[in-house]
Each structure stands twice: as structure tokens, then as C-alpha cells.
């Protein structure tokens, strides 16, 4: 991937096909997670979910009530943010081995938020290490997650620089 460049009505960047596929896959997963969250069908004890949907009050009762009325809307808006990324990657200008992705000024916010969500989930998995609640992942997976978190950090930071 190369750094984002400013265009007349947004930003544009080149993604290798493999990067775009991985990025799209992450957006799909986050989209499903947010959709499940909107329906109350996620495991709130999962540290990654806790990080994505933190308490809005330090008092547990107030936090619970706040979550009850605020979470569905927050989750739907985050699902839409992942949609924006998916649409951007799918409709990109396809070249040999790479694609040119264009993001309009009105979609930048969704992209930045969507990338933040991906980094949050992957970082939670890395922090947990292997075993326990994280038994699905081994050392190699976590090393790969770490590389993806850095890559997503570049995607986000260079987008912010291009604005």
C-alpha cells in the first residue's frame, strides 16, 4: 500500500490485491460483530467487545442503562462505517495486481472510524496472548495480527496526513 494522496473531492491510495482482500475480510468481520452487537447478540465478557463497547458510566447500574439505550444506534453507525470501507474496496479501480481506492470527503470519517475498530479488536487479541479466552489463536496468528495492526496504523495515519 502507498500513502494516500489528496484528490479534488477526497483521497486516493493504491492497495495490492492481497492487502485489499485482507482489508475487506476484516471489514466484513467487524460488520458482523457490530450487527450482532446492535441485536444484543455478542459476548460482552469478551475483552475485544468490552473495548469496542466500553461503559459510559463508572457506576455499573448507570453504565448498564446507558448501554441499553445508546448501544443499538452506535452499533448501527459503526456497521455503516464498515460498509463504506467494503464498498470503497469493491468498487475500486482494478489494475494488474493492485487497485486504486478512492474515498470521498464525506466517507473519510467512516474509513477512519472503521480502521480504528479493526485495530482495537486485533490489539485486544494480541494483549490477551494465547490460551484461555483466546484459545482459537496461536503465536503465529498473534504475530500476524501485530503486523496487521501496524499496517492499519499506516492506512489511518497517512489518510489523516493527506486531509
Amino acid at each position: 500500500m502507498r500513502a494516500w494522496e489528496r484528490t479534488d473531492d477526497g483521497v486516493r491510495a493504491r492497495f495490492e490485491d492481497a492487502e485489499a482482500a485482507m482489508f475487506e475480510n476484516l471489514a466484513d468481520q467487524l460488520k458482523l460483530l457490530h450487527r450482532a452487537a446492535a441485536q444484543g447478540a455478542v459476548e460482552f465478557a469478551d475483552p475485544a467487545v468490552q473495548r469496542l463497547y466500553p461503559d459510559g458510566y463508572s457506576d455499573p447500574e448507570e453504565a448498564k442503562e446507558f448501554k441499553r439505550f445508546s448501544l443499538p444506534q452506535i452499533a448501527e453507525s459503526r456497521e455503516r462505517a464498515q460498509d463504506a470501507i467494503i464498498v470503497g474496496l469493491v468498487t475500486a479501480d482494478r489494475k494488474e495486481g493492485h487497485r486504486i481506492v478512492s474515498v470521498g470527503d464525506d466517507e473519510v470519517d467512516d474509513w477512519l472510524r472503521g480502521v480504528s475498530d479493526m485495530r482495537t479488536v486485533l490489539s485486544s487479541r494480541i494483549e490477551l496472548g494465547t490460551g484461555g479466552q483466546n484459545a482459537d489463536f496461536d503465536e503465529d496468528d498473534l504475530e500476524q495480527f501485530s503486523a496487521v495492526v501496524d499496517w492499519l496504523g499506516f492506512v489511518q495515519a497517512s489518510l489523516l496526513e493527506a486531509l
Binding site: 466500553p54 459510559g56 463508572s58 448507570e62 445508546s70 452506535i74 453507525s77 472510524r113
Partner: peptide, 17 residues
């Protein structure tokens, strides 16, 4: 509460105090 919900939507940790 609206602000905190918005911050959560951006992936930031925020609370009403």
C-alpha cells in the same frame, strides 16, 4: 451522554462524569 455515545462510536474510551 450524546457526546460519550459519539466518542464510543469513534472507538474512544469515554464516560459521563
Amino acid at each position: 451522554e450524546r457526546h460519550v455515545a459519539a466518542m464510543h462510536g469513534y472507538g474512544l474510551q469515554a464516560t459521563v462524569e
